[in-house]
């Protein structure tokens, strides 16, 4: 990742973004970009970096176009000339928008394609994380249920043992004898 630092104290680094419509002839595109670059060379700018985004959808239609091409230039030039450049860029036909920004000190240029791939990776990991979390929650639920069932089964066993155990054999026989020897019962 290149870090932008101006070569001398008289010049500054400017970030110039240019937007032009997407369905465009190759010839027209080349002409347009040449014209844009000519504006800078006339103002005495020196190109430091260039980042071509390619076509992407716009958030709202600009001049009847819903898709546009972005190109971002990093130029090193005299601060007094920037106004001329701005005005010259306004005049160029078929150029939808342009934006001139002073990047902060020690600004790192990140290529859009790299950033995009990085973002996609992060997004993937995020979705994976969510999936993992849901899976873990499900597993926990299953384990809890199994535990509860085991507990219940144990309790039932205990209960049956308790209900079966209480009357001892001797007592039972004695009581049975009592019933049999009872004279009041006419069987």
């Amino acid at each position: 990742m290149p870090i932008l630092t101006p070569s001398s104290e008289d010049v500054r680094i400017y970030e110039v973004a240019v937007l032009y419509p997407y369905p465009i002839n190759q010839k027209e595109e080349q002409l347009l970009l040449k014209e844009v670059e000519q504006v800078f060379t006339e103002a005495g700018g020196k190109q430091v970096e260039k980042d071509v985004w390619g076509n992407r959808g716009l958030a709202y239609s600009i001049g009847g176009h819903t898709e546009g091409n972005f190109v971002i230039y990093y130029y090193e030039m005299d601060p007094s000339k920037i106004k001329e450049v701005d005005e010259a860029l306004l005049i160029i036909p078929n150029l939808l928008r342009h934006l001139i920004v002073k990047p902060p000190k020690d600004y790192q240029v990140l290529k859009y394609s790299d950033q995009y791939s990085k973002w996609l990776k992060e997004r993937e990991t995020e979705t994976q994380k969510r999936e993992r979390e849901t899976e873990e929650a499900l597993k926990k639920k299953v384990a809890d249920r199994a535990k509860r069932q085991a507990k219940r089964a144990e309790e039932q066993k205990k209960e049956t043992e308790e209900s079966a155990a209480p009357i001892e054999k001797k007592k039972l026989t004695a009581e049975l004898d009592k019933i049999i020897s009872d004279d009041e019962l006419d069987l």
Partner: peptide, 11 residues
């Protein structure tokens, strides 16, 4: 605001 101007974000 810059992103909106360049059509990256919607107004």
């Amino acid at each position: 605001e810059r992103a909106r101007f360049m059509g990256v974000l919607a107004y």
